[in-house]
């Protein structure tokens, strides 16, 4: 029974995150703080359940939950949740829940469709570079996902008529999209590209193999390099930046799910 406890925690956390999303949406629509506080409470319960799920997964599989796509997406969503809770403590803006909770629900829906079997680490994964690489990649892609979530809200918000009292301003959303990309980019560069290349050199004898997952990571990196350069030049801001963050989400999803049908050196996850 213990072997399945992590899956039980996963489903429990999923429903609580979904409930928190509903409450945050009510808060955004009605501006009733009680709805926001309920959303926050549900989010915290979901976070505790998810953390318990990750710990039990770690115990069941005897390694940190980073080896399979299911574990990767769980860790990524957990990092997003940690980031959200830290932001709430720092800025006290519950409205961020409208952005983060749907992103989490989306990631967990994708996780629910992935194989959930826990297994021992294959020889190539038995390296501390594996933990550095995968944790940082999950953190950075989590940040890009938050940027896309904020981008979607920005597009919805900026489409409204003037005169409506905004719960969250377009300027704030623009800053959030740009800030999340600026957090994700260096972490992705160091974690997904550099640490990945170093680990590949130890495991496979070459820094770069043009494996589909590696190429996907390079495509993501080049895309966000382009976005940041244009943003710094003042070209891609506001709605354009929001659209770019959503395109970025599409590329990340293609790369994330790509090894299910593209094969290559990363096809074991």
């Amino acid at each position: 029974m213990f072997n399945q406890i992590d899956i039980g925690f996963f489903w429990a956390s999923f429903w609580f995150y979904l409930s928190s999303f509903i409450m945050f949406s009510i808060y955004a629509g009605s501006k009733k703080s009680s709805a926001g506080k309920t959303g926050m409470l549900l989010f915290c319960i979901a976070f505790v359940l998810q953390s318990s799920g990750l710990v039990s997964r770690w115990i069941v599989s005897s390694h940190p939950p980073l080896a399979t796509m299911f574990e990767y997406s769980l860790t990524m969503s957990w990092i997003i949740a940690v980031w959200f809770i830290a932001m709430i403590f720092r800025y006290r803006r519950m409205i961020l829940g409208v952005i983060v909770s749907p992103v989490l629900v989306m990631v967990l829906v994708i996780s629910s469709m992935l194989p959930k079997d826990a297994s021992a680490l294959m020889p190539a994964l038995q390296s501390y570079w594996f933990y550095i690489h995968v944790t940082l990649a999950a953190a950075s892609e989590g940040a890009f996902l938050v940027a896309a979530g904020a981008g979607i809200v920005l597009l919805l918000r900026s489409g409204r008529k003037n005169g409506e009292d905004p719960v969250i301003s377009v300027e704030y959303l623009d800053e959030l999209v740009s800030g999340a990309i600026r957090i994700g980019y260096p972490v992705f560069t160091i974690g997904a590209l550099f640490a990945g290349a170093i680990w590949a050199n130890y495991a496979w004898g070459r820094f770069w193999s043009w494996d589909p997952k590696e190429t996907g990571a390079l495509v993501i990196w080049l895309f966000y390099t382009l976005v940041l350069h244009q943003n710094v030049r003042g070209r891609w801001q506001g709605r354009t930046l929001a659209k770019m963050s959503i395109i970025g989400l599409g590329i990340i999803m293609l790369s994330f799910l790509g090894n299910l049908f593209l094969g290559g050196l990363h096809s074991y996850i």
Partner: peptide, 24 residues
Amino acid sequence: SQRLAITVISVLFGATAAGWLFTE
């Protein structure tokens, strides 16, 4: 110029993305 740098990054991005799909 920054414009050329951005053009080259765009071309590299496009070529890499196309190569990614071609190989598959």
